[in-house]
Design a binder for these strands. Structure first.
Lengths: 349, 349
DNA sequence: GTTAGCACTCTCATCGTATGAGTGCTAATG
DNA sequence: CATTAGCACTCATACGATGAGAGTGCTAAC
């Protein structure tokens, strides 16, 4: 393998494009004959073979066995999505249909996420995935404490984006509901509009100040607040359409399929992958072996971030086999992210 | 097929038991030879064959093809779980281990459900499933209204069992947060400890009374309450370990497997099946074709109800192939249901 | 640079055969 | 009369050989 895209002529690029598109459509190794045919017979199969030999040498194509056609390598897909593909934008009708589906979602953010996930999986015939906003990053609208039993308090947290989170907190002392309400009011006044991570800092600071003071209620409120917000929260993932990829011939083998499904179930690892995408600007594509995790190396991701106004909230996209329909899926993901951002921006304002 | 369990001799029952146990363990059709062996060679294969022919005639056994051994029919499994099986109770050590896992769950009810689901799937090496309590049936501890945007109110509902539910409600008039708080206080006083379904009735009644009166706030509160609790809620299902059944040889075929997974994703149908179990007293076993739904006819369920005190809350159990290890799974489900009931009873008190 | 021709490789489907597990039936046995 | 040995028969499965077909790589000619 020589590593020289500099030597790629226009013909190399054309042939590679044809092969990848053909393979994505058929899942069968592509031979020189069929490339020549798609080329309008302006070149003979033999010529194509020479080009293909070059491409194989560059590492963009591989052969499953000696006398079979070529299939794209991950490196091949990479160059394809970077500079070869012609994106195939959504039709007006499709866009309208998608917009309509989002209009129906009047409810809370969770519904919006679910709808987006379903939409992505449905239209891509692959797996749709949405990484929900970290609670840490979100502005808080409201805190509420509900006494569950003598020493257990249910903490409810509402963000400005309309997400609701709750957790149970154990206390050593018994606090009556009446006092809890007062504490909630105190804290609400203090933290409204702040992000959870800023709240944490604030509480530490206040605690230090308050040590000298003697407002018992405030002291208790701060302690309770700290307990409530102590843990780092993990991003939540919505995923849908996993059964879609069962059809893909690359997972016909039950053992491979099982591995994939186990991978989907391990949401914490998935979150880590999606977090990487968050770091990037704009649309991110991760192809097969570019994934660090072993179980993911047969899968590709197309992800785009979504926002509320200027604030980056999360990322959404499609997971599929490396042989996925990038030219259709990229515009789909792009458009969906835009719409989700629009919806969330409206809600927040 | 003659339909006459009356004619079942002790020997018939013994042979059927041996065959079913063998088949459950091996997933291979069972031949007369191996039955004779398990019998300590006190009878010859030929004799066993006669018995097996009888059992086949009664409809308890079937042959995949002429010259293969026998496999149990769903009817065979039915008589097995009803009167043949020797339950194989959990060891002291296992019980201790399970109890320990539940002790760790100090948190909210959702965590408890998730933990139970994982436990069931882990120990059964099948699919664990828990039908969470219907909100309708549960006593309400607290209602809270949070203004999300001008016309959208987030309604938060806390049950005495510590579940949190929320939904978005759209209004025509704009109500300031201050008024919302007052309304919440009004409603809380009114409904605390009542079940959602009773609250619905109550609100209708109050509305009628109030029509004549002129407390604007109360009127608004009632309207908002009605909107909030209007819809019937659907039971939520926790499910875990779906990948476990991929190993089962009966689902080696990808198409069959896909059908199963699609069935798992369709939670609404699953809820309907589980609801049936709720109607029953005590532990319910549904075997293969006893399921009404086509997609479920290759699966069996072992379900047990769980309670908070006296009140029936939901049902939990294991889903697996009809060839599942009933003698181990029945005690497991039974014990788990008992423990979950205990935890929930403690929380409520 | 392009192409025709050709030998070569490798997969896959097909077919016949052998194998072996297991049955059902019959007749002999205690 | 229940039990059993014996035996012919049935199928599923594994195996090996064979042949077709697709596709390659190389060489020599255009």
């Amino acid at each position: 393998m020589r590593g020289a895209p500099a030597e790629l002529t226009e013909r190399h690029r054309d042939v590679l494009r044809v092969i990848i598109q053909d393979y994505i459509a058929s899942a069968e190794p592509v031979g020189s004959r069929s490339v020549a045919r798609k080329y309008g017979f302006r070149l003979s199969p033999a010529t194509i073979r020479n080009v293909m030999a070059d491409l194989a040498e560059f590492g963009y194509l591989a052969q499953p066995h000696t006398s079979a056609g070529r299939i794209p390598t991950d490196r091949g897909y990479r160059i394809y999505v970077d500079s070869l593909m012609d994106q195939c934008p959504l039709t007006r009708a499709q866009e309208g249909m998608i917009e309509k589906r989002f209009c129906h979602v009047q409810g809370e953010v969770g519904d919006l996420m679910r709808e987006a996930t379903k939409l992505l999986s449905g239209l891509s015939r692959s797996v749709g995935v949405v990484l929900a906003p970290r609670v840490d990053q979100l502005a808080i609208r409201r805190i509420e404490f509900v006494q569950q039993s003598a020493e257990r308090i249910l903490v409810i947290l509402v963000t400005t984006s309309g997400q609701v989170h709750h957790k149970m907190v154990a206390l050593d002392e018994v606090i009556p509901q009446e006092a809890l309400n007062k504490m909630a009011r105190l804290l609400n006044a203090m933290v409204e509009g702040m992000s959870l991570s800023r709240v944490r800092q604030l509480l530490v600071k206040k605690m230090a100040e308050e040590k000298a003071m003697y407002d018992e209620l405030l002291r208790q409120a701060l302690t309770l607040g700290q307990k409530s917000f102590a843990e780092e929260t993990e991003g939540e993932v919505y995923i849908d359409g996993t059964t879609n990829i069962m059809h893909e011939p690359e997972f016909a083998d039950v053992e491979k399929m099982r591995a994939i499904f186990v991978a989907f179930e391990e949401t914490s690892k998935l979150v880590r992958i999606l977090d990487q995408c968050l770091g990037q600007q704009g649309l991110t594509i991760i192809i097969g072996s570019e994934n660090v995790l072993r179980e993911w190396q047969r899968l590709s991701l197309v992800m785009a971030p979504y926002y509320s106004g200027e604030q980056l909230l999360g990322t959404l996209g499609v997971i599929g086999p490396t042989r996925m329909d990038y030219d259709k899926i990229v515009p789909l993901v792009d458009f969906t992210a835009r719409l989700v951002s629009r919806s969330l921006t409206e809600v927040a304002s």
